[in-house]
Deep mutational scan, measured.
Amino acid sequence: NQASVVANQLIPINTALTLVMMRSEVVTPVGIPAEDIPRLVSMQVNRAVPLGTTLMPDMVRGYA
């Protein structure tokens, strides 16, 4: 089972991601792999991401 990136807090739209906003968790469906967390830092979300939501590739500008 692969860990995915999950929002550690509410992340408002257009917010640049920081390490404290994300955690890794084994979830279904699988989202962005946890090993990509360092790559996600400073990328912006293109929608509001509620606490506990799995980050999907289409939620992060420039990721996919």
Rank of each mutant, 00 (worst) to 15 (best):
V20P: 08
Y63F: 09
M56K: 05
I32A: 02
M56V: 13
A34G: 10
D58P: 08
V27Q: 11
P33I: 13
P50T: 14
M59A: 10
M22I: 13
G31F: 01
V60M: 04
A3T: 08
P29V: 09
A34D: 15
A64I: 13
V20M: 15
G31S: 03
I11A: 01
P38C: 04
P57M: 07
Q44G: 04
V27R: 06
V6G: 01
L55D: 02
N8G: 07
P57G: 11
V49W: 02
G52W: 07
I37R: 07
I13C: 09
V45N: 03
L10H: 14
N8E: 13
N46A: 13
V26E: 15
G52F: 07
A64G: 12
A48V: 15
V5Q: 01
P50F: 10
G62N: 05
I13E: 15
E35D: 12
T18G: 06
L55N: 01
S24V: 13
P29T: 04
R47F: 07
N46K: 10
M21R: 03
P12Q: 12
N8R: 07
T28Q: 06
R61C: 15
L10C: 15
P33T: 13
M59H: 13
Q2L: 15
I11Q: 01
A64Q: 10
E35A: 12
I37P: 00
V26A: 09
V45R: 00
N14S: 09
M21V: 05
M59I: 08
P12L: 11
V60I: 11
V41F: 05
P12G: 08
T54Q: 04
N1A: 15
G31P: 01
V6P: 00
Q9L: 15
P38Q: 11
E25Y: 04
V60C: 03
V27Y: 02
R47Q: 14
I13W: 04
P38L: 10
P12M: 14
L17V: 04
L55S: 01
V27M: 13
I13T: 12
V41M: 07
T18M: 06
Q2P: 15
Y63C: 03
A48H: 14
S24E: 12
N46E: 15
L10T: 13
I11N: 00
M59S: 06
G62H: 15
V41N: 04
L17H: 00
P50W: 09
S42R: 06
V41P: 03
L51T: 13
R47M: 14
N46I: 15
T53P: 01
Q9N: 09
Y63Q: 05
A64E: 13
M43P: 00
P57Y: 06
P33F: 08
G52C: 07
I32N: 00
L17T: 00
A16C: 14
V5H: 01
A34P: 09
D58M: 04
M22S: 01
S24C: 05
Q44P: 11
V45S: 08
Q2W: 07
M43K: 14
E25K: 04
L40A: 00
E35N: 09
D58F: 08
R23D: 07
N1G: 14
Q44S: 09
M43Y: 10
T53E: 14
L10G: 13
S4A: 03
L51F: 14
M22N: 01
V26H: 08
P50R: 13
M56G: 05
Q44Y: 11
N46Q: 09
M59N: 05
D36V: 08
P12F: 04
V5L: 04
D36F: 07
N14I: 02
E25S: 06
V20N: 13
V45P: 03
Y63K: 04
Y63W: 12
R23G: 08
V6T: 13
T15F: 06
V6C: 04
L40V: 08
M22P: 00
M56W: 04
A64R: 10
I13A: 12
A3F: 09
P33R: 06
G52S: 15
R23V: 07
M21K: 03
R39F: 15
S4N: 01
P29N: 08
P38Y: 06
A48Y: 08
V6H: 02
A3I: 11
P38V: 13
L10A: 14
P29S: 05
I37F: 03
A16E: 09
M59Y: 12
D36N: 07
T54E: 01
I13N: 14
R39G: 06
I11T: 01
Y63V: 04
S24F: 08
L10Y: 13
M43Q: 11
T54W: 02
G62F: 06
V49M: 06
P12W: 05
R39S: 09
T53G: 05
S42N: 15
Q2M: 14
R39N: 05
V45Y: 00
L10F: 12
A3Q: 05
V30N: 06
Q9G: 04
V5G: 02
E35P: 07
M21N: 12
T53W: 09
R47E: 14
I32L: 10
A3C: 14
P38H: 12
P33G: 09
L19D: 05
E35M: 08
I11F: 00
D36I: 05
T15K: 08
V5E: 00
R39V: 07
R61T: 14
Q2S: 08
V6R: 03
T28F: 06
P38K: 14
V45D: 01
V5I: 15
V45I: 10
P38A: 14
M56C: 14
I11K: 00
L55C: 02
S42K: 08
L55W: 01
T15W: 06
S42D: 12
M59Q: 05
Y63T: 04
R61N: 11
A64N: 11
N1Q: 13
V41H: 09
T15A: 11
V26N: 07
M43I: 05
L19H: 15
V30T: 12
D36H: 09
Q2A: 13
I11R: 01
Q44I: 06
I37K: 05
V30G: 09
N14F: 05
L10P: 14
I32G: 00
D58V: 08
T28R: 03
P12K: 10
Q2R: 03
M59K: 02
P12S: 12
N46P: 03
L19T: 12
Q44F: 11
S4D: 00
D36W: 05
V60F: 03
V49K: 00
I32V: 09
L19A: 11
A64K: 13
T28Y: 10
R61E: 09
P57W: 04
R39E: 05
M21Q: 05
L10D: 12
R47A: 14
N8Q: 09
R23T: 09
L55I: 14
V6K: 04
T28G: 10
V5R: 01
R23M: 10
T54M: 04
G52D: 07
S42G: 15
T18F: 03
V30L: 13
A48M: 14
N14Y: 08
L40D: 01
V41W: 03
V27K: 07
V6Q: 05
I13R: 05
P29E: 14
A34L: 04
I11E: 00
T53V: 14
V49E: 01
L55E: 01
N46G: 10
N8L: 05
V41D: 03
A34F: 08
I11H: 00
I13K: 13
L51P: 14
A3S: 14
L40F: 02
N14H: 09
T54I: 10
V6S: 03
L51A: 11
I13L: 07
M22L: 12
A16M: 10
L55G: 01
V49D: 01
P33V: 13
A48K: 06
L10E: 14
M43G: 03
A7G: 03
L19C: 06
I11M: 04
N14W: 08
T54V: 11
D36E: 13
A7Q: 01
G31C: 04
P50L: 14
S4Q: 02
V30R: 03
A3V: 09
A16Y: 10
R23I: 10
P29C: 15
P57H: 06
S24M: 09
E25G: 07
I32Y: 02
S42Q: 12
Y63S: 05
M21H: 14
V20A: 12
A48C: 05
P29R: 03
P29L: 08
A34W: 08
V5W: 01
L10R: 08
R39K: 12
P50S: 09
Q9Y: 13
T28A: 08
V49S: 02
M22A: 00
P29D: 12
Q2D: 15
R23C: 05
M22T: 02
A64T: 15
R23E: 05
A3R: 04
I13H: 13
D36P: 00
P50K: 12
L51K: 12
R39Q: 12
I32C: 03
T28I: 07
L19W: 09
Q44N: 12
L51W: 09
G52Y: 06
R39H: 08
L19N: 07
Y63A: 04
Q2C: 11
L40R: 00
E25Q: 06
N1W: 07
Y63H: 05
G62V: 03
N46L: 14
V27P: 01
D58N: 12
V41E: 09
V27S: 08
P12D: 14
